[in-house]
Amino acid sequence: MRAHAFAMGLNSFGEVATDNGRTLDDAETVRLLVEEARLAEAAGLDIFSIGEHYRPGHVDSAAPVLLSAVATATERIRVGTSVTVLSTNDPVRLHHEFSTLDAVSNGRAQLVLGRASATESFPLFGYDLTDYERLFEEKLELFMRLQREEKVTWTGTTRAPLVDQELRPRMRPGGVPTWIGVGGSPNSVVRAARYGLPLMLAVVGGRPQRFGGHVDLYHRALQQAGHDPQPIGQHSLGLVADSDEEATETWWRYWEPVARQLAEERGFYEPDRRRYEAELEHGALFVGSPETVARKIATVVRDLGLSRFDLKYDIMHLPRRARARTIELLGREVAPRVREILSKEATHV
């Protein structure tokens, strides 16, 4: 059961846009993200998040800096990360960045921590992929202690020890909202529950309802650890347009080459139109008119007991007009319709 007020957000991986057929350069795309955050706030959305990637066509490699710009350009919308690769970040530096962001934004900062599905940051910052699990486990333990304790003494294998360390500026009491991103690992679900942290399900393919077992495991693990119920969110890809046909054709045009590249890099299935249409119908692509997308979101919110849904709205070379229209429709039409559907369902329980 959802125990928290429903929130609708946007995720960006900083993917470069096009404008009238011209590909924006990196600096233009950075400025576009700030503009889109303002648009998201005006449309009534609750959260604007930015990822962390280190590959051509992405400009989200310094998310805390970009989010600070977003914070100064907005007043209400919460600002955070759709993923922070904790394994290749230093927890002390991360604390400084997000305590500062939280101060700049007047308490609107949050983040999602992940182990990384894209691993370019490991060689870039001198980490060994064989330490994948150990890096995340140690750094999460340290980061949460830095958030929750005034002074920290800590010893591990991934960085220098700390002795009675105080950090400034301080986090708000208890730290900023920190979610654990999960792509399918039950161990990650249990880890989130052990720390009493909210769970963000990264559902990028297949039926979202297949994560129902993870949700059940999370609830059981929270209870066993003695923690109160925590929010559960979902991150998925999609586009909203004025009609189903427009949305379907627009997303296919820009999603297909990205999916084909990922298939070559990671061994995923080759994209084809039949599989694409199946994902639209029953899978994790939220593409369509406002009514179509709202009904699909409401279904997964009900089935998984979600309190938050974040739509990743950018994909390589998607025109800025299509991005802006998605933001506007998601905030002004989809989010209110989702809440209306959920409210009607609740009155009939």
Rank of each mutant, 00 (worst) to 15 (best):
A284C: 06
A284K: 04
L285C: 08
L285T: 02
L285A: 03
L285E: 04
L285D: 05
L285R: 06
F286S: 01
F286D: 00
F286V: 08
V287G: 05
V287S: 08
G288L: 04
G288W: 01
G288E: 06
G288Q: 02
G288H: 03
G288R: 03
G288A: 09
S289A: 11
S289P: 04
S289T: 03
P290A: 06
P290K: 05
E291D: 15
E291S: 12
E291I: 08
T292D: 09
T292Y: 07
T292Q: 10
T292N: 07
V293L: 07
V293M: 00
A294V: 05
A294R: 03
A294G: 11
K296N: 01
K296T: 01
K296R: 12
K296M: 01
I297F: 05
I297M: 14
I297V: 15
A298T: 02
A298R: 00
A298I: 04
A298Q: 00
T299K: 09
T299Y: 10
T299G: 02
T299M: 03
T299R: 09
V300L: 08
V300Y: 14
V300W: 14
V301H: 00
V301K: 00
V301R: 00
V301F: 05
V301E: 03
V301C: 09
V301T: 10
R302T: 15
R302M: 11
R302L: 07
R302H: 15
D303L: 13
D303M: 11
D303Y: 12
D303P: 06
L304M: 12
G305T: 09
G305D: 08
G305Q: 10
G305P: 12
G305M: 10
G305K: 13
G305I: 07
G305L: 08
L306D: 07
L306H: 09
L306F: 11
S307R: 06
S307V: 09
S307E: 14
S307Q: 10
S307P: 15
R308H: 14
R308M: 14
R308Y: 10
F309H: 13
F309N: 00
F309W: 11
D310H: 13
D310S: 13
L311F: 06
Y313F: 15
Y313C: 11
D314S: 12
D314Q: 10
D314E: 13
D314M: 09
